[in-house]
Each structure stands twice: as C-alpha cells, then as structure tokens.
Design a protein around this nucleic acid. Structure first.
Length: 420
RNA sequence: GUGGACGUAGCUCAGCUGGUAGAGCACCCGGUUGUGGUCCGGGAUGUCGCGGGUUCGAGCCCCGUCGUUCACCCCA
C-alpha cells in the first residue's frame, strides 16, 4: 500500500515550503503592522455556526463542507472560511466589549470539499483580519489598504482591486425586486434559474457568454443605493484615492458568502488560471448578531496564501531565499561526534545556525554536502583537532581557512559572521 | 457533481506501424592517505498506476478502475 496525501490538498515541502513561509509571513506582517492581533482558532467548529453565519443557501455550506459527527454525537465541520470563527471567538471572549474596533487576524488551513483545480484545493491556507464594532468608511479603506500592502510587499504588480457596495438592507431589497422581475423575463436553464432563486445576484457572476449577454441590461444594485450608502461608498473611494490605491468599480461583483453588506472588494490576479481571486472581503452588518453576539458591524478580508504564492511565482518575484546554515560541522570518527554535538549546541545557544554531517562518510563526501548546504563556514573536527585543541574555520566562498582554538571557536565564528 | 487531457526510475521526459525498458538531472562511490564547487570514470534505482481482455508476444491496442491535472459550477 502506497499512501498518498488526500485528494486536492496543498502540501509544501522543501524547497518550495520556504517560498510558502515567505508568502504567509509577508501577508501576516501586513496585518500585524496595522494593529491586528492574533487569534489562534480551532480548525473545526459547531456545524451550525457555519450554516447560520455563512448562510445555508451558499454553495460553501450546501455542498462544500467537511462535516462529521464526533464521538459525542455533535455535528462538527472543518472550517470553510475564517470570518465566522473569528467572530465567534471575539464574542465568546468579550473582545467586542473593549476598545472598538476589536481587531484580530488569523492564519491557517481551511477546508472545502470541491473538485480541485489550479489554485483551488480542498485544504488551502488563508490569512485574514476582522475589525469589529465601528462603522467608518476610513476603516473600510484601511482594511483594503492592508490587503493591498500585503500583496505589494510580496512584490506583486499584476493584480487589480475591484470594489462595489452592496448597500444597506433597504437598498438591497428594492434592487432585488426589480432584478427578480428582470430575470423572470429571461429564458434561462433550470440550474441557473434555481440559483437565481437562492440569490439573484449570483447570475451576474456567470462566466458563460450567452448568460452575460442576457444580464447586460439587468438592473444594477449600485443604482439602488440609499443616500447614506451612496455617501459611504463615495467616501471609501475618496480614501482609496488619497492612499493612491487604484481600483475599479465592478457593480456585478458577487461574493460567495451571504453575510456581506456595504463595501465589498476582491483582488484579482492576471496571471492565474480560472481561480484568479487572491483575496477578498467586505463589511458585514448583521453577522455578529446572527451568530449570537451584539448588534455590531464589522469588516474584514481573507487572502489566499496558496494563490498569492502562485501569483508571486508567475510574476517571478519570489526571492531566491538562500536557506543556509551559518556553519557546517564535519566530525570524523566516533569520539569527534560527541564534540561536534556539544559544539553545535553551543553555537546554537549563540544564535548561530549550524548543522552536522551525520553518518560515516569520507571527508570529501561530507565536504560536498557542506557545499550543497550553502553554509558559509565549515569546521572539520577530527582526532588531530581534538588532540591539539585547535580547529580551522573554512570560509566556503573564498576557500580560505583560519586557525582558532576550540575554546574560542564560537566567539571566532560570531565575529566572522558579523564581518560577513 | 459534469467534461477534456495525462499516468514509464527521486525529478523532467523519450520509447518508431505491439517483440521481454532508456536519457538528462539528482543521488552514491572513486580519480593515492583528512577538505567542496569544474572535469573524468564507475554504480544503484522501475511490480511501465492497478485489474481484466485481445495477441505467440503489450509500456505501446481495448474495457474497467484509481490517481493527477485543467475547465465548468463556485471560490481563497
């Protein structure tokens, strides 16, 4: 039996795992630098949290969740997205009763039982932020700016920001009536019609040409915004302009999660396949209350780490991250191994990264490994070194060696590393 | 859930109209005693995804199955 990873998961092993770490950490930094603090959350939750929060009618909930019964008979679901879990934690720990907005970020794996394809996995990684308790267009703009900054920090250029506003409840209700009327005049296939009943906005997102043509003159939600919503949306745009963040208004943008209201946005990358969204988010006004919290509004985003990495690779901006130890220690013979272990431990205490050549290979062979490891220095530890108490530090780039006493080795290496 | 493409050494792939498996890279050893990168020589490695069928004979043909991948749906 040859085991394989479960279908459709994204796995990262060396050397690409370094690029993954870089992507994840860069995006996380954008959140941290903006005052957001970590919430380390469970990857599974009470199923009902998602059915209520995300919306039972969404594809995510209706057909993409990994749901199972635990041993106590509870229905558990592997989290398909991050927002509702983060809000649940905020409510449970009373973070929404302190200084507002309560600002948190999360990072980790998410799960959706879909057919995998380029950039779409059954286990994927996201970093997200949530700011709860304040309604302010400037906050909306800042949330967008943080995501933007994260992508820019990765070096991405070939992406665009699309924004729209879903308005308030009255705006949406008025639009929906007209939109449904419009859709009823169209000749649509059964599946599409069924989708329109669940959420008529979804039809805007259809990729088929004939459907797009039919929807070309459909009523647009932006035309139905109340004065307040309109003013709010314009303010967000003004702030984005002040930040010099380019955006396009996409009135047909549809998000897959039902809880969005007001400002919503998506980052789309040009070089990805069909799954080109590298991040998105928006404001949610009823969600906190829906899952049992106070009636507070919030806004947040989720950024796809896997896709951001794919995008960075497509743009060729992934740094050639030289993963290398500072020092490579080669012990020759059994007694030398103990010394090597002790010296390596001392180096690590002194914050020098080092690795040891294990096994009983010829020196030449070990040197080849040292070379491949890209370590800056090599220290050979054999009988003569132990006997004399003096070792040579070899600088791999220049090939030169420096002789030092065993007792001053760590100090000498520290100096050499600083000298660079 | 639907459709297409593909499944040969660790990786990338070759294998002519069916005749009992190959290359490059990587890996290991060596080129005189304990010092890498180039070069040279040598070496190990595969139930050709799996099961069945056709055939004297199948990696090459047929069927099924599993997997990978791309697209639809949908989304990070």
């Amino acid at each position: 039996m040859k085991f394989q990873a479960p279908k459709g998961v994204s796995e990262y092993v060396p050397p690409r795992s370094r690029a993954f770490e870089w992507t994840r950490d860069t995006l996380v930094s954008a959140a941290k630098h903006s005052g957001y603090q970590l919430v380390e959350l469970p990857v599974f939750e009470d199923t009902e949290l998602f059915t209520r929060g995300v919306g039972a009618s969404t594809d995510v909930v209706s057909k993409e969740m990994y749901t199972f019964e635990d041993r106590g008979g509870r229905s558990i679901t592997l989290r398909p997205e991050g927002t509702v879990g983060a809000l649940r934690a905020i409510i449970e720990h009373g973070l929404d009763r302190g200084v507002l907005p309560a600002r948190v970020f999360y990072v980790g794996p998410f799960f959706r039982a879909e057919r995998p394809q380029a950039g779409r996995y059954r286990q994927f990684y996201s970093v997200g932020i949530e700011a709860v308790g304040i309604e302010d267009p400037a906050l909306d703009a800042e949330v967008i700016a943080i995501a933007h900054a994260g992508f820019r920090a990765l070096g991405l250029k070939q992406f665009r920001l699309e924004i729209t506003s879903l308005g308030d409840a009255t705006s949406r209700a008025a639009h929906r009536i007209d939109l449904v009327k419009y859709i009823e005049t169209l000749d649509l296939d059964e599946a599409t019609l069924a989708r329109s009943v669940i959420n008529p906005l979804r039809i805007f997102d259809d990729k088929r040409e004939d459907i797009r043509a039919k929807m070309a003159s459909a009523p647009i939600l932006l035309d139905y915004l109340s004065d307040d919503s309109q003013e709010n949306f314009l303010a967000v745009q003004d702030h984005l302009r002040a930040l010099k963040i380019d955006f396009v208004i996409n009135p047909r943008m549809v998000r897959g999660l039902d809880y969005y209201t007001g400002t919503t946005f998506e980052f789309v990358h040009d070089l990805l396949g069909a799954q080109s969204g590298i991040g998105g988010g928006g404001r949610y006004s009823g969600l906190m209350e829906e899952i049992g919290g106070q009636n507070l509004t919030g806004i947040g985003f989720g950024l796809g780490i896997d896709r951001a990495l794919l995008a960075a690779e497509a743009e060729g901006v992934v740094p050639v991250s030289a993963f290398a130890s500072d020092v490579y220690v080669i012990p020759l013979g059994t007694p030398a191994k103990s010394h090597a272990l002790v010296i390596a431990a001392l180096m690590r205490e002194a914050n020098i990264t080092c690795e040891i050549a294990f096994g009983d290979r010829a020196l030449k062979s070990a040197m080849k490994s040292a070379d491949k490891s890209q370590a800056r220095f090599v220290v050979v530890l054999g009988e003569s070194e132990i006997a004399s108490g003096s070792v040579e530090i070899k600088h791999m780039e220049t090939g030169t060696t420096t002789s030092v006493t065993l007792t001053s080795l760590v100090q000498a290496l520290q100096n050499a590393l600083l000298a660079k």
